[in-house]
Every structure is written in C-alpha cells, then in structure tokens.
Amino acid sequence: MNHKELIAEIAAKMKLPRQEVEKLLDATVAACTEQLGEGKTIGVQSFGNFEVRKKEERLSVHPATQVRTLIPPKLVVNFKQSNILKDKIKDLPHHE
C-alpha cells in the first residue's frame, strides 16, 4: 500500500474528500518529522513509539581492500511496536 492508496482508504473510512485527507496526512507527517527532528520521542497509543537514537562513531574495515574508514556518529529514527500491536500480529500466518 502506497501513499495514494492509504489516502484513498482513509478518505473512504472518514467520508472526507481525498484532498482534505492528503492535507491532514501531510500536516501530520510534518508535525512528526518536526518533533523527531528535535529529538523527541513520539508515542502513539496501541501502535508504537518513534524515537531518535544515536549511533556512535565506529571504525569499519573494508573486507576486500582492508581500507579502514571512520564512520561518524549519526542519529536515526527507530520504531518500536507496542505490545498491543505485537499481540495483534502474533497470530498472523507467516509466509515461508
């Protein structure tokens, strides 16, 4: 499901025009991004937490060329699912 399909789905459920839903979605994404950009953790009830984690700098060695590279520290967004969501998807049949 991509962006457009998601909008269509939500629009159908809420009985709102797509443009409206799109606006809302964009605003939400922008708000979330802004909060995450400030390093805040966003907790969504029954879904999960979005948090920013710091990856420390590290030394990577290219296995073939043996070139050592110092990777600088960075901040990444991490999502941790809530237990409610975990329980919901627990019984899902996995393909394999």
């Binding site: 939400t28 708000a31 979330c32 909060q35 400030e38 390093g39 805040k40 953790t41 966003i42 907790g43 969504v44 009830q45 937490n49 920013v52 710091k54 901040l75």
Partner: peptide
C-alpha cells in the same frame, strides 16, 4: 539529546 516523550495528543 532531548529525551522528552510526547504523546499523539500533541501531534
């Protein structure tokens, strides 16, 4: 780093 946690309410 800001450790503050916000809920969906703020969004």
């Amino acid at each position: 780093m800001n450790r503050e946690k916000i809920s969906s309410q703020e969004i």
